[in-house]
Amino acid sequence: MQALESLMYQLAQLFLAPVLLIILALFLFAFYNLGSFAMEAWQRRRGLVSPLHRHWQHRGGSCEDLELWILRRLEALRLATRTGPMLGLVGTMIPMGPALMSLTEGNAAGVSENLVIAFAAVIVALIAASISFWVLTVRRRWLLGDLRALEEQGHV
């Protein structure tokens, strides 16, 4: 049984770096989307054509086609909001094993080093998920409102 436990521990440690990189990527993705969201809000306030209207002008399509386009456009944000907290939890739990091992050995520096990683992972992941969720929610409302306006105008 000791070999199985050791294998599981080593396997979990292999995932720490990739999980932390994905969390960092989600964080950058969230801020990129926040910037594009701010730009879209500014354009909407100025009365410029929305992305849905631009898509419809160039490609046309039925209401169902536009709904599918909306889903595709929002899919990455939706995935970020759902996977961010899960990856934050994974990024928190992986360093807890070495932190507990350091605690039993009386190595306070090892405990603190691993706890810093654990807490940073969950905080960054939750911030990324929160920003993504906020952008997703407002952008969905905007796009569905645009779709409704196109329907009322009889274009779709």
Rank of each mutant, 00 (worst) to 15 (best):
H53V: 05
M1W: 05
L26T: 07
V138A: 07
G154D: 06
A109R: 12
G97K: 04
W142C: 05
S62N: 03
A99K: 09
R78H: 09
T81S: 13
L16R: 08
G61K: 07
L24Y: 05
G88D: 07
N114R: 07
T104W: 02
V49Y: 05
G35C: 09
G91K: 06
L150Y: 03
L7A: 13
G91S: 12
L136I: 00
E67A: 12
G60S: 11
E64W: 04
Q57E: 13
G35W: 13
F31R: 02
R148E: 14
F119T: 13
N33D: 12
T83A: 09
M8F: 13
V111P: 11
N114S: 15
A38M: 12
I117D: 02
L100S: 04
G91D: 08
L20Q: 11
L126I: 04
F29V: 12
A25E: 08
R44A: 12
L71I: 00
L48V: 00
D65Q: 13
L21I: 06
M8T: 02
L7N: 06
R141Q: 12
G84K: 06
W142R: 08
R72N: 09
Q43K: 15
P85E: 03
M1L: 08
A12F: 11
S102V: 09
W69F: 10
A80H: 09
L144P: 02
V122M: 12
V111L: 13
G47I: 03
C63Y: 12
N107I: 00
S130K: 09
A149P: 00
M1T: 04
A30W: 03
A41V: 13
E105N: 13
E152R: 14
G110D: 11
F37P: 04
G88E: 03
L71W: 00
R54Y: 05
M8A: 15
R73I: 00
L100I: 07
M93I: 15
A25L: 14
F31E: 03
I23G: 03
Q43G: 08
L87Y: 06
A149V: 06
A76D: 03
L24F: 13
H53A: 15
I23M: 10
L136F: 15
L115Q: 07
A108R: 05
L147P: 03
E40N: 11
S36Y: 06
Y32S: 13
R141V: 01
N107Q: 11
E152F: 07
A41F: 11
L21T: 01
M39V: 15
E67W: 01
V138E: 09
A80W: 05
R54P: 00
M86T: 08
V138M: 02
S36R: 14
H55L: 12
L16A: 12
M86E: 03
T92L: 15
P95M: 10
C63K: 15
S6D: 11
S50P: 04
A120N: 14
C63I: 02
G84C: 10
W56M: 10
L100Q: 04
L144W: 11
L68D: 04
L115E: 04
I123C: 07
S6A: 09
T81Y: 00
G88V: 09
M8V: 08
